[in-house]
Amino acid sequence: MSLATRWARFRKSEGGSGLALVSPTAIYAILLLAAPLATILLFSVLTDGYLVVEPVFTFGNYIETWTNRIYRSVMMRSLGVSVAVTVLTVLLAYPVAYFVSFHVQPSKKSLWLFLITIPFWTSYLIRVFLWKVILGYNGVINSGLMATGIIDEPLTAISYNVQAFVVTLAHAYAPFAILPIYVVLEKIDRSLLEAGQDLGESKFRTFLRVTLPLSVPGIAAAVLIVFIPTIGDYVTPNLIGGGKIPMIANMIEVLMLVRDNKPLGAAIAVSAMAIVTAVSLLFLFTIRKYLRGQK
């Protein structure tokens, strides 16, 4: 069989048609996503020169990233904020997803989900800024508490700091946590819960032994979808922290654009992604028992 007829046959086959159809999107993603990511990966092992990147192989950028105290502490801070945001968001979101799935009439579920998603679609920047207003030194909470005489001077524990980041991000990612959990809860066969109670368990014990384990895939999806993007948040530290408490994204910006040390910036970006991937995989590995046999 000649190459041409083989090609013609492949084009006509299912695999060929599928590839042809997906190719515009795939080529776009390869050119504008895969290639740039590969470039970052390449830059991270090259040497920084004046205004240019020297094609000289080095692990120096990674050594700098992992040994320099400043970079390390920023990375740890970002990781800490991400973990805190993830835990807080998922914990707060679960009961909401549970309520909508189990206690809302089927005809009204869409409306509740709609209500939950609306705030998410309004300007992210303005929302972040308003959290600064709410949590700030002269903010809504402090002035409210002072006006009612509960405190005498403004609380500083909630203003312009890491705690404020966590609250702001927990708000921003709320729908990302609620929706996957909700979807999984919806799929649970309600007769399983009746079976649980029929076998002598209380409602609460049935929740612990049946509902919760079955909803683990949703929780896992929620955790990953919140955890991974938050580590790269740029706006919150900038607007709420006034740029004084940088996180990874802010540091990458400085290195890449202000100090023009692209290889070091690339190494930090790659390291951040590596940490995120490692933590995510570790998380999935820990809960693998509950993910098995479900999809």
Partner: peptide, 19 residues
């Protein structure tokens, strides 16, 4: 790959594209 930007921090997407 097509779905990757959903979980990739935007900063990384922006920086790699910029470079």
């Amino acid at each position: 790959l097509i779905m990757l930007p959903l979980v990739l921090p935007e900063m990384i997407v922006a920086m790699s594209l910029l470079v």
